[in-house]
Design a protein around this nucleic acid. Structure first.
Lengths: 336, 336
DNA sequence: CGGTAGCACTCTCATACGATGAGTGCTAAA
DNA sequence: TTTAGCACTCATCGTATGAGAGTGCTACCG
C-alpha cells in the first residue's frame, strides 16, 4: 500500500523530531511545527493510520508516538534527504587517503578516529586479519645485545615480536632460514599455512627460539584474526538512551566484550558497499535496540576492512550514511 | 598517639566488612560479628574515638561508619594481613615470565590480561615509549608488488609501517640509506633524536617516500610516547560505587580520555617498586574517589613499564598488593 | 467525506507525607 | 569502664494526589 503525501510528511517529521529530541512526538506539537494548516486532530488520525501500518509505536497510551523499526526503514529508504559530509571532516579524510600508507591496521585506526570525531556514533572497525592476507616476507632482524626482531609482512599488515636470543645462537642463520621459508611461502594466503608447514620449516631452528618462533607465527595466524577496534565510547554513552544505569551497564559490557559488536559488524558489512541495519533487523538479540551503518572495503573482490557507525535506533542516519559513503570512496580509491 | 589493641581490631573489622559489603557498618552488627564479649554501646564509643582521630567517616548522622582515607592508609600500612596470589593466577604469571619475549608492549598487554582477570580492578599499564628506548635498527623490508615495510627496532619495542613505493623507486637504495642511518644512531636514546637529524638523513630519499618516512619516524618518536592501556572496564564499573548514572558517566569519561588515569599511574608508580595511593592522597581531583596500587618495573635504573590496579577506595588492597608484588618480581627477573 | 472542536479518559511524573528502621549520642546506673 | 535505655536523626519506601501531556472518540461543519 502506498502512503499519501501527507502521511509521508508526518512520518518524516516524526522521525526527524524524534532523532533531534529523543522525546516521543505528540500530535499537538507536530501540528504546530509541521505548518500545514491542519489541526492536531487531523494529525492524530494520520498517526493512528501510520501506527496501524506498523510504522509508529506508542511507548504507552498517553505518550506521543515514536518510529518503529519499519518506520525508520521507510525513512531511510525513501524519505530521508541525503546530505554531504561536513567540510572539515571531508577535508581530513581526503588528506589521509592521499597518503601512501598501505597498512590496513593503521588506516583502520586513523579512519575510526575521524569517524568518531564526526558524530555521536560508536565507530567500530575491523582490519583484514589473517583471512585475506598473503605472506610477503618473514625475517629476523638482528638488533644487538642478543636480541632479534621477528617480523612477518603480508600485503596489508605487519606483525613483529622482539625476542632474546638464546646464548650461542646465530642470528644470521636464523635469518637465512626464515628467508628461505619466506621465499617458499611467498604469496600464500595466511589461512592456508598450516601448523605442519611451519614446523617443518622451523625444524632446523633449535631450543627455546623454536618455541618462540612457533608461538609468534601461531599468533600471527590466529590471534591477529580480526580483533574489532572500537572508538567513541563516551559520546555514544552520553546519549539519552543510556540514561538508566542498567542500560549503561549493558552497553559497556557489549563494548568491552566486543564479540556481539563484531558479529553485528560482520553481518551488516556483509558483501561490501554501504548498508544499514535497524534495530531488530539483525539476528543478534544484544543489539536489538541499536542500529548500524556499515561498510565493507573491497580490494580485488575481497573484503579487506569493515567499518560500522553504531548508535541507538534514533541515530542520525543521513550523517552516518554520508560519512560511510565518503570512507568507502576514499579508501577503495586509496588502496586500489 | 597509639591505638590500643581493641581500637585496631575495630578499625580493621570496619575496613574489611566495608570492603566486602559496600554498606556502612553499624555498631550493632559489628558488636555481633566481632565476637568480643562487648556490647554495641562500647563499640559506639570506640567508633566515636576513631572518628575523632580522623580514621572513620559518617556518610550522614544515622548511617554506620565508613573508613576515611587515613583509615584505609592505617589499615594498609599496619593492620592488613598479607595474602599470597591465588594459585591459578600465580601459575599463569610464572609461565608467561619464563618466556623469552623482550617486547614490552607485548609483555604489558599480556600482564594486563592476567591482572584484570584476577579481580574487579581496572588494570592500567604503560610501556616504555620513546622516553627510555634506544634505537637498535632502522630498516626497509621489500615486500613485493611495490610495497615496502619500514621497521624501527629499539631495545624494547618495534614499530612498523607498510608503505607503497612510488613508481621507479629502488627498495634496495632505500634500505641502504636506512641501514647507514641505523648504524650512525645505533644505541642513541629515541628522545635525543631530533627532527633535523632525521631530515638530514632522509635527504637522499626523494618525493612522497620521504614524506612518509618522516611521518613514520615522527610517529615513532612522539605518538608511541606512552599510550596507557586499560583493561577490565566492565568489571570495574559493575561495582556498587558506580550505581548512580552520574558516577558511571564520570568513570567512563575518565577511562576513555585516559589522560587522568595516565597521570595517576605516572604519579603513583613514581620511583619503581610497589606503592599505594588512596583517594585524596593523589593530587588529581578526578581520581579522588579512587585508589591505585601501582608498580614500576626497573631495568638498569630506568623505568621501562608501569602498571596500576585501580579500584574504588573500597578495594581489596591485600589482593592487589599481592598481584603487584608478583608482577614486579616476575617481570624484573624476566627482563634482567 | 475529509477536517475540526470538544471532551472524557489514560498514563507518567513530580511532590508531599507518613511510617519504618537503622543507627547515633548521651545519660545514668552497674 | 561498660552497659542499658532512650530520644533523636536521617534515608528509604510506599502511597496518595495533582498537574500535564496526549489519545481516541463522537458529533458537527463546509
Amino acid at each position: 500500500m502506498e502512503l499519501d503525501r501527507r502521511k509521508r510528511q508526518v512520518l518524516r517529521a516524526i522521525v526527524e523530531d524524534y532523532v533531534a529530541s529523543a522525546e516521543p512526538i505528540g500530535s499537538r506539537t507536530l501540528a504546530r511545527t509541521l505548518g500545514l494548516g491542519v489541526s492536531s486532530a487531523t494529525i492524530r488520525n494520520e498517526m493512528a493510520d501510520l501506527e496501524a501500518l506498523g510504522l509508529l509505536d506508542k511507548p504507552h497510551t498517553s505518550a506521543g508516538r515514536v518510529p518503529s523499526d519499519r518506520g525508520y526503514r521507510l525513512y531511510v529508504d525513501e524519505l530521508m534527504e541525503p546530505r554531504p559530509v561536513e567540510a572539515e571532516a571531508f577535508r581530513r579524510m581526503r588528506l589521509m587517503y592521499l597518503r601512501r600508507v598501505r597498512e590496513m591496521d593503521y588506516l583502520v585506526a586513523q579512519t575510526l578516529k575521524l569517524l568518531s570525531a564526526a558524530g555521536d556514533f560508536l565507530a567500530v572497525g575491523l582490519g583484514p586479519g589473517a583471512r585475506t592476507a598473503r605472506l610477503r616476507r618473514l625475517d629476523a632482524l638482528e638488533a644487538g645485545e642478543g636480541q632479534v626482531a621477528l617480523v612477518l609482512v603480508t600485503d596489508h599488515f605487519v606483525q613483529h615480536r622482539l625476542v632474546e636470543m638464546p646464548d650461542g645462537m646465530d642470528a644470521g642463520g636464523l635469518q637465512r632460514s626464515l628467508l628461505v621459508l619466506s621465499h617458499e611461502l611467498q604469496g600464500v594466503g595466511l589461512e592456508r599455512i598450516t601448523r605442519s608447514m611451519l614446523e617443518s620449516v622451523a625444524r632446523e631452528i633449535k631450543g627455546r627460539m623454536r618455541e618462540e618462533l612457533l608461538s609468534f607465527l601461531h599468533d600471527c595466524l590466529s590471534d591477529s584474526e580480526e580483533q574489532v577496534r572500537i572508538v567513541g565510547t563516551s559520546r555514544f554513552l552520553a546519549q539519552p538512551e543510556f540514561r538508566e544505569p542498567e542500560r549503561i551497564r549493558e552497553a559497556v559490557q557489549l563494548i568491552e566484550q566486543s564479540g556481539a559488536l563484531q558479529e553485528l559488524l560482520l553481518e551488516a558489512s556483509g558483501r561490501g558497499g554501504v548498508s544499514v541495519r535497524i534495530g531488530g533487523e539483525t539476528s543478534l538479540p544484544e543489539t536489538r535496540e541499536l542500529s548500524i551503518v556499515a561498510l565493507g572495503i573491497e580490494r580485488q573482490g575481497e573484503l579487506v576492512a569493515r567499518f560500522g557507525l553504531v548508535g541507538p535506533k534514533r541515530m542520525d542516519y543521513a550523517k552516518a550514511l554520508a560519512l560511510a559513503e565518503e570512507v568507502l570512496r576514499g579508501l577503495e580509491q586509496a588502496i586500489s
